[in-house]
Structures are given as structure tokens and as C-alpha cells.
Amino acid sequence: MPDDAKSSPRGGGFQFKVRGPRDFYGGLVLIALAIVAIWASGDLPGQAGFAFGPGTAPRMFATLLAIFGALVALTGLFMDGPPIEKYALKGPAYVVGAIVLFALLIRGASLDYIGVPVQLPALGLVPSTFIAFMVSIMGSSEMRWIESLLAAVAMTIFCVVLFVYLLQLPFQLWPWV
């Protein structure tokens, strides 16, 4: 793969081949992050007399981040590096989906502010844990139904015993209690 980058034909004009895409795009994202931070802290008062204002440090560090992001991107532009690995979709989608579902179901939530007029009920710890387990296990390509259901039940019992009975944390267990 690096061979390909080295012998890359310079096409017409200023076509430039990115030699280390991992660094290059990584750096670009960091620059974007820094710009967002500078913009978001723009309304904060800065230095007043000898004292730092609340906005001084965020802008200072954001500017530094932009500089370092640019340096990282530049190394990616000029130095050979490995190509970007493919992003998996299935694993992250199920894992994140499971976590978000847990967050939405444990106390119930209104989806109004993403524009969906749905009110999710508060299911409590037991169903939320079970559902989160089942959704996350679907991210694996080796998932088997019976085994998964058994494991989900076992894990739910374990968590209830640990968090509710042993650690005595206040949890709503079921939708109706």
C-alpha cells in the first residue's frame, strides 16, 4: 500500500495525493473541533485586567488544538502512513443503539425534541437491562438465540441483585413499581 502512495503519479495541476490519510483526516477533524470550540466560547468575556476571564483558557487551548491539528494533518499530507481502516457499521450501531435505548427506557423519555411526538414509558431496571442486553448482543455475528436469552436473564438477575439488593441503590425495577 505505501508503494502505491510513493509512486503516485502527480496528475495535472496541483493534484496532491494524501500520503497518510489516517493522520490527514484525523488532523482535519481536530481542527474542526477547535473551530467549534472557539465559536462556542466566542461569547464569553476574555481577559479583564490581570485576571483571566472565563473565555480566555478555552480560546487559548482551542487555538493550540487548531495548530496541533494542522501539524498532524500536514504530516499526513507529506508523510507516508497506513490507509484508513474500514469502519464497521453493524457493531457500533447495535452497541450504541443498546446504550441509548437503555437511557431512554430506564426513566422514560419524550422524543419531542427530535421531532417525534412519542412518549416512551419508564420501564424500570429489569426490562431496560434485558432489552439493552438483547440489542447489544445482536451486534455480534455469532449470536445464538437461546443462549443469548438465557444469558440476558442471568445478567439481569445478577445486576438486580448487585445494584438493588447488595448496593442498595434506588432503582425502579418494573414499569409498574
Partner: peptide, 23 residues
């Protein structure tokens, strides 16, 4: 691992939630 990781995930979810009771 296919059984291990969902366990870790739900365990973490409950753990984080219990810190501040915050979804």
C-alpha cells in the same frame, strides 16, 4: 466474547446511570 461484551455494556449503563440518576 459474544456473551461477555453485552454483559459489560449493560453493567456500564447501569453504573453510569446510578452515579447521578441521569439518562
Amino acid at each position: 466474547y459474544r456473551l461477555l461484551y453485552p454483559s459489560i455494556i449493560v453493567f456500564c449503563c447501569i453504573g453510569i446511570y446510578s452515579i447521578n440518576n441521569s439518562p
